[in-house]
Amino acid sequence: MIAEGVPGGKQDPRAALEGTRPGRQMSAYLQHLAVERGMALNTIAAYRRDLARYATFLQARGVGSAEAVDGRTLTDFAQALRDGSDGGSPLSARSAARCVVAVRGLHRFWALEGTTPDNPAVDLHPPAAGQRLPKAISVAEVTAILESVPTETEAGQRDRALLEFLYSTGARISEAVGLDVDDLHLERPEDGPAVVRLFGKGSKERIVPLGSYAANALDSYLVRGRPVLAAKGVGTAALFLNVRGGRLSRQSAWTVLKAAAERAGIDKPVSPHTLRHSFATHLLEGGADVRVVQELLGHASVTTTQVYTRVTAETLREVYAAAHPRALA
């Protein structure tokens, strides 16, 4: 495993943490995040990489324990993240902010656990990151992507169901490939409308409705495609299967979307998260309340969702500037 951002770029994050006393003290924090806070594995992996860089920095500075860290050390580390003066790759403001957040959480944990007498990171603040607007694509472009998928084969039926599902629910790709068949409830006259149970960050559960296009594509896949794919494996509850009958990976799902976008003639970058951004943007453009979109996306705070209102406002300004006779002098 390559430790992105760790000086030298070649050290395994686990080895970096176990190689020094501060690093070993950091491992207790990661265990706390995984066991007591229930953080997602991907989030834990990102924290481990960030803390591995911090552990290597402390070792280079001759800091032999958590108790020896002071405010100057923390300030110098935050600067090193931006300029690479510790030998690591310079990080963007957004990546550096994530790393600083990990370090602040670490020192808060150490202080609460009594590892250190106080918290020297109280006044450590992450660098301001410019807010990037989500990159949504138009409804016509989404439709072209979805309709470009051939469904003559079992894999094609799966691909169409997957892409329809991502756009219909706004699910993260990790949530989609992590689904089991039992998480899906397709519409039946006696059971009610189609819904799906999604598990987001921190294993937080939410129920999201399915549009008719996605429900029909999933129904077709479950009847015609999945049984054939499942017969090639040893038996799994996963909803989306690969050609060997196992659970579809995130990388394979990304490849499915990339191929569909190419067939549709979409020449701009498109990723599974693009469909999530487009889902939110199109809902708001259609008049949905931002708090409803927040619930559908599984955002803990409405502030995270409100960035999409800026996207729709930008679109309105562009249309206004192009169409109104006195918009521009």
Score class of each variant (00 low, 15 high):
Pro193His: 06
Thr153Met: 02
Leu218Glu: 04
Leu179Gly: 02
Leu162Trp: 01
Leu229Lys: 04
Ser271Asn: 08
Glu175Phe: 02
Ala214Thr: 08
Asn242Trp: 12
Ala214Asp: 14
Pro150Thr: 01
Glu190Ala: 15
Val223Cys: 09
Arg158Asn: 00
Lys201Leu: 10
Leu163His: 02
Gly202Gln: 08
Ala238Leu: 11
Val196Arg: 01
Ala214Leu: 06
Val256Thr: 12
Ala231Lys: 14
Ile207Ala: 07
Ala161Glu: 01
Arg244Ala: 14
Glu187Tyr: 12
Ala176Asp: 09
Ser168Lys: 03
Tyr167Gln: 09
Ala237Cys: 00
Val256His: 13
Pro209Met: 02
Ala215Glu: 14
Pro193Lys: 06
Ala237Trp: 00
Val228Leu: 15
Arg244Lys: 12
Ala161Arg: 02
Glu152Trp: 13
Asp183Gly: 10
Pro189Leu: 10
Leu186Thr: 10
Ala161Cys: 13
Thr255Ser: 13
Arg226Trp: 05
Arg188Asp: 09
Glu190Pro: 00
Ala260Ile: 09
Ser203Ile: 03
Arg197Gln: 13
Leu229Ser: 04
Val196Tyr: 02
Tyr213Leu: 12
Leu241His: 07
Gly235Ala: 05
Leu257Trp: 13
Arg188Cys: 08
Gly200Arg: 00
Val181Arg: 15
Arg250Glu: 15
Val149Asp: 02
Ala230Cys: 01
Ile145Pro: 00
Pro189Val: 05
Gly245Leu: 12
